[in-house]
C-alpha cells in the first residue's frame, strides 16, 4: 500500500511536470506544424536562469521563476524570428535538422557558459518540508508540481475555450489559410502561442528541476520524452496531452520503482504499442 501510494504521487508529479513542459510543444506543433526538437532546450534555459537567480544571486524562488520565464521568452523571440520562420511549412526532415541544430548549439553554449555540472534550484522555504496526511507523508514540492500542472491545464483550457484569442487560435489550428482569410492575424497568433509555449517550457523546467535535473545534456535527454508525449497525445490537443502525460508518467515511474534494472524499456514499449494502435495519437483527429 505504501509503495502504491508513493508510486502514485511520484507518477502524478512527474506526469504534471511533463505536461507543463510539453503542452506548449503540443500546441505549437498542432498550430504551426513544426517538429520542434529544441523545445527541451528552452526548458533547460529556464532551469539555468532560475538556478542562477536563486542560487548565485540569492533572490528567492518566486523571482527566479518569473525571471526564468521572462528571460527565456526574450531569448526565444529572435530565434523564432530568424530561424523558425524559415522552416514553417517545410518538410519534416528540414525541421528536424534545423531544430536539432539549435538544440546542439544551445547545449554547447550552456556548457560553455554554466559548466558541465548539475545545477540545483534552492526551493522556497514553504516548499521544502513534507506534509503529513496521517498515514503517509508527501513532500510539499511534489504537491506543488501537481498543483502547477493542474493550474496550467485549467488556465489553458480557459484561454483556449473561453477567450476570443482562443477562438482565433483554434481557427488557425484547424485551417490557417481560412482563418487568415477571415481576418485573423495568424502571424500574431503564431508569435503569441510560440512565446506562451516557450514560457511554459521554462516554467516547467524550473518547477520540475527536482525530477528532471538541470544539466547541459538535459535538452537532448528529455527532448525525446517531450516529443513522445506530444505524439502519443496527438499534436494540438490539451486533453490528449494530459492523458498521455499521466499515462506515460505512470508507466515510467512504475517501471523505475518496480524494475529499475530495465530502465526505460517499458516506457518505450508502451509508446510503440500506443502509436501502433493510435497512429494519430490518443486524441488525434482523422484528417
Amino acid at each position: 500500500m505504501q509503495t502504491v501510494f508513493s508510486i502514485a504521487i511520484d507518477a502524478l508529479a512527474y506526469g504534471m511536470v511533463l505536461f507543463v513542459i510539453s503542452i506548449g510543444l503540443s500546441v505549437t506543433m498542432g498550430l504551426m506544424r513544426v517538429v520542434n526538437l529544441a523545445h527541451g532546450a528552452f526548458a533547460m534555459i529556464g532551469g539555468y536562469i532560475a538556478s542562477y537567480v536563486a542560487r548565485d544571486l540569492g533572490l528567492g524562488y518566486a523571482l527566479a521563476v518569473i525571471a526564468a520565464v521572462v528571460i527565456t521568452i526574450i531569448i526565444a523571440i529572435p530565434i523564432e524570428r530568424l530561424l523558425y520562420r524559415r522552416i514553417y511549412g517545410q518538410p519534416e526532415l528540414t525541421q528536424v535538422l534545423m531544430t536539432i541544430g539549435i538544440t546542439f548549439c544551445i547545449i554547447g553554449i550552456a556548457n560553455y557558459a554554466m559548466g558541465p555540472t548539475l545545477k540545483t534550484i534552492p526551493l522556497a522555504e514553504p516548499l521544502r518540508g513534507s506534509v503529513d496526511l496521517g498515514f503517509r507523508t508527501i513532500s510539499i514540492h511534489r504537491l506543488f508540481a501537481i498543483i502547477c500542472g493542474l493550474a496550467v491545464a485549467l488556465g489553458l483550457w480557459f484561454a483556449i475555450e473561453k477567450t476570443s484569442f482562443g477562438v482565433k487560435l483554434r481557427a488557425s489550428v484547424d485551417n490557417a489559410a481560412m482563418a487568415a482569410a477571415l481576418g485573423v492575424r495568424t502571424e500574431i497568433v503564431y508569435a503569441i502561442s510560440f512565446a506562451v509555449a516557450v514560457g511554459l517550457a521554462a516554467f516547467g523546467g524550473v518547477v520540475g528541476a527536482e525530477l528532471l535535473p538541470v544539466e547541459p545534456y538535459y535538452a537532448l535527454r528529455y527532448m525525446v520524452t517531450f516529443l513522445v508525449v506530444v505524439s502519443v497525445g496527438g499534436a494540438g490537443s490539451i486533453p490528449g496531452a494530459l492523458i498521455a502525460c499521466l499515462l506515460l508518467g505512470a508507466i515510467d515511474t512504475t517501471g523505475r520503482y518496480l524494475m529499475p534494472e530495465f530502465g526505460e524499456f517499458f516506457f518505450y514499449l508502451a509508446v510503440i504499442a500506443i502509436i501502433c494502435v493510435f497512429p494519430r495519437g490518443l486524441a488525434g483527429r482523422i484528417k
Binding site: M29, V35, E92, V96, V224, L227, V228, V230, S231, V232, A235, E261, F262, G263, E264, F265, Y268, L269, V271, I272, I275, C276, P279, R280, G281
Partner: peptide, 28 residues
C-alpha cells in the same frame, strides 16, 4: 512492420522509441 503503421511525427517518434528499445535490450 512497426514504423510503417504511422506517418509524419508519430513515425519519427516510433523510430526514436525503437532505437531506445534496442539500446535497452542490448543493455539488459
Amino acid at each position: 512492420v512497426i514504423m510503417l503503421r504511422a506517418h509524419g511525427l508519430p513515425q519519427l517518434v516510433l523510430s526514436i522509441a525503437l532505437i531506445y528499445l534496442f539500446h535497452e535490450l542490448a543493455n539488459k
